[in-house]
Amino acid sequence: MSPAGERMVLPSAKEIDLRAAEWLERRHREDWNEADQTALDAWCAEASAHRIAYIRVEAAWTRAHRLGALRRPQNRGGVLGAASRLPLLAKIAAAVAVLSAAGAGSAIYFKAPPQKVYATAIGERKTLALSDGSKVEMNTDTVLRVVADGSGRTVWLEKGEAYFQVRHDSAHPFTVMAGGHRVTDLGTKFLVRTDAQKLQVSLVEGSIRFDAPDGRMREPLLLSPGDSVTAKENTIVVTRNSERELAKDLGWRRGVLVFDNTTLADAAAEFNRYNREKIVIADPAVAQLRIDGTFPNENLAVFARAAQQLFELHIVERNGKTVISK
């Protein structure tokens, strides 16, 4: 029943887990500094068990933070009990009142900070090296506005998709605005894609904060790597992605589209983002066929041929369109 002596090399799991929680608690205090960070890094480097215990308790704590972020004001109460805090709407109203009062007076004097607009054509891909060392890879048919002033760095993703590798600088936060949502980098690699129906943000590495434009979220959402937020008109959903799914979403960086049990309809829509020449699927039954594989995103012919051989379909070129039918 009692463990043999040889097995007592490691302190108990509970001790290590508690120690990791102590580190995390200290990490969240205001006076956390470089020296503390060095000490924590050293503790984590001491044994894999330490590092694992730390990332585990940190991941749980990050999840707990989502509770605050996802919880709508009217759902409060319950296990959390009453809380004394201004209703959110009242707060927003107050903030808006202050802003508009200031805005009315200062609008005339307001000078727009310098900004640059970058765009890619359909099928084009471009990498921007920003002066601060950050890198932005723009996918097909994308428009970006970059504003850099003294207080921070802001990129507006007007349309399309971009992959950000941000040089973190806490004095000058890097912010991406898209569809009224705000993504703030906390040291990071992430992907943002926007179209008429939805905005999707996927975090590859590091950490980001996601804010919705209205009072939908009481607190910003903190994402950890692998998290993906999809914001539509009325919903915000957080999902976890596997390594494979992320690699799939980032395929365009190598010029490929990766399909995994993807319907021909969805595959065609993807190709159409990259090519002026469009694929049209003429038959609803054909549209529901599913396909796997990796294809160069600018080469419709390869894809059309694969679909043709796989499902014995007919391919016709007509007025700059590739029509696929039975």
Partner: peptide, 17 residues
């Protein structure tokens, strides 16, 4: 119209681990 003779890209590898 953007159809370029794209040699050797057909066998693009799937994203392995």
């Amino acid at each position: 119209m953007t159809e370029a003779p794209d040699k050797g890209r057909e066998d693009a590898e799937p994203p392995g681990p």
